[in-house]
């Protein structure tokens, strides 16, 4: 798995993927997104190179764009999908601890987070924290609602709903 982070500028994805393509690599699951002023890439890659070889392949792009590169050898394959069956949406006053409170309650209820996205909305004086979590749980939606029920009192709204994946 490759992790690349750098100041956001046009052409990062193109230069990085072009270098990987020319080196004969295959791309798998990836998350590429701007966070703050940085552009972040996390990407599953397979290819003939050792981690050192991959570092050399990417060196021109990394140097030119001022990226930081990290490589983790993993054995998971290019993709290994788990389908989420529960969605949790959280809104509340922007403050530290909101993520820890909600995810702590969910973890205690055996909820496995597959993805978590969060953002801050509202005006700068009264920011609102918005978080969307998708995950997998053997428990019912009702049981998870119970698990997070106590958190509403602390000024945040937590909505738990089933994710019904339509297959057709």
């Amino acid at each position: 798995m490759l992790t690349l982070v750098g100041e956001d500028r046009p052409g990062i994805v193109a230069k990085v993927t072009q270098a990987l393509y020319q080196a004969g690599c295959s791309l798998g699951e990836a998350s590429m997104i701007r966070l703050g002023g940085s552009f972040t890439i996390m990407m599953m890659v397979s290819g003939p190179q050792t981690p050192e070889g991959l570092t050399q392949v990417l060196a021109p792009a990394v140097d030119e764009l001022g990226l930081r590169l990290h490589i983790d050898p993993v054995t998971g394959g290019l993709h290994r999908h788990l389908v989420p069956n529960v969605q949790v949406r959280v809104t509340g006053a922007d403050r530290a601890g909101i993520v820890a409170e909600v995810t702590g309650a969910l973890a205690a209820a055996g909820f496995n987070i597959l993805e978590l996205e969060s953002d801050v909305a509202g005006d700068p004086q009264r920011p609102v924290y918005i978080m969307s979590i998708q995950g997998y749980s053997e428990q019912t939606v009702e049981a998870l609602q119970q698990a997070v029920a106590g958190l509403g009192a602390e000024g945040i709204t937590v909505d738990v709903s089933a994710v019904e994946t339509l297959i057709g």
Binding site: I130, S132, D159
Partner: peptide
């Protein structure tokens, strides 16, 4: 992330 449903409190959905 920014669906209106975010602002509905509790209750079964879908």
């Amino acid at each position: 992330l920014f669906q209106r449903k975010v602002y509905q409190k509790g209750g079964p959905t879908r």
